[in-house]
């Protein structure tokens, strides 16, 4: 049983950042802007917030610091994503190219800034992880659920789930969500009834920037003791999660958990009592997430529900 708890707790460390970033990508794409810059935004968000933690950790620690860092990460991701928004919406640039540009510039900026701002001139930014919650009082005593969700955890786990709930509500139950979806499907139609497509798309990209930036922080904190200008391709993985999840919040949650679980098993099977004795080469475990992705995508691609206007710059004058 303890193995299952461990597996689940470890899976959350992979899944929650994927979930948050993929939800970010969802907002952008459903407003009609392809955002492959998620990776770069994650790097920027992680850089700013980890640097913030690095500077502030002498005077404060624990979850107050983490909450402030979360705000920093979201704000910096949002600001950084404005570059993409401006290029994609105002300048009607090819969205793949402007996204790629952001992906390329982010690690370079992070390294340059880290080396310039830090007195010792190294690119790694160290931080002390004082944010882990060993167990949540009371809630951790709930049988099964307490072990799964309320031990050895981070507030970011709950934040991620809260973001999921809010995102689903916003997308389907609010006026803003309706307009957002309309702009992603048929912006001309939305415009004809007085919706400002540019504004909505800006909002979509900025939300995705905030969530991706936050995802960068959530990704780095539990898995290392420093930030080295990379998020190891998790931004791109989040894109796969987004597509796997068919641009729908609940399916994205499922996809993120699936990816996280497969990743966890692939990485840690040698420490899992049942799996380590099986005569399966490790390569198989490492392939599983990708093979599963290919299979599922092959079966769902025919009725893939990508937003129709996603990736198409909106031009008021065009018919």
């Amino acid at each position: 049983m303890s193995t299952i708890y461990f597996l689940f707790q470890q899976m959350l460390l992979f899944s929650i950042p994927l979930l948050i970033v993929a939800l970010g990508g969802m907002f952008s794409e459903r407003s009609g802007v392809v955002n492959i810059a998620l990776e770069g935004i994650m790097v920027m968000g992680a850089f700013c917030s980890i640097f913030f933690i690095n500077r502030m950790q002498d005077i404060m620690s624990g979850n107050l610091l983490l909450i402030l860092a979360i705000l920093v990460a979201a704000a910096s991701g949002m600001v950084f994503s404005l570059l993409h928004a401006y290029a994609a919406i105002n300048m009607r640039a090819d969205q793949t190219i402007s996204g790629t540009a952001l992906n390329m510039i982010a690690p370079a900026v992070a390294i340059y800034m880290a080396r310039t701002l830090q007195a010792n001139g190294v690119q790694q930014i160290n931080f002390n992880n004082t944010f882990r919650i060993r167990e949540v009082p009371l809630l951790s005593r709930i049988p099964v659920l307490g072990d799964l969700l309320f031990k050895n955890t981070y507030i970011t786990t709950y934040l991620g789930l809260a973001i999921l709930a809010v995102a689903a509500f916003m997308l389907y139950k609010t006026r803003f969500g309706l307009r957002l979806r309309a702009c992603g499907e048929h912006p001309q139609a939305a415009d004809s009834v007085g919706v400002n497509v540019y504004k909505i798309r800006y909002a979509g990209v900025m939300i995705s920037g905030a969530l991706a930036g936050l995802g960068g922080l959530v990704f780095v904190v539990p898995t290392s003791t420093n930030f080295n200008a990379t998020v190891a391709g998790y931004g791109f993985l989040a894109l796969a999660v987004l597509i796997f999840g068919q641009w729908k919040p609940l399916r994205i949650l499922f996809a993120a958990f699936f990816f996280g679980l497969m990743k966890t098993i692939a990485a840690s099977y040698s420490g899992l009592p049942l799996l380590k004795d099986m005569p399966i080469p490790s390569d198989i475990y490492k392939m599983v997430p990708y093979i599963a992705t290919l299979i599922v995508l092959a079966f769902t691609s025919r009725k893939s529900q990508a937003p129709r206007a996603s990736g198409v710059p909106y031009d008021k004058g065009s018919r």
Partner: peptide
């Protein structure tokens, strides 16, 4: 005994170490 195949801090390395500790 394991080689990660790189010199970076990755979540995979963290997960593997965590599973060993857990074991």
């Amino acid at each position: 005994y394991h080689y990660t195949g790189g010199f970076d801090a990755t979540p995979e390395a963290q997960a593997l170490a965590a599973s060993w500790y857990n074991d």
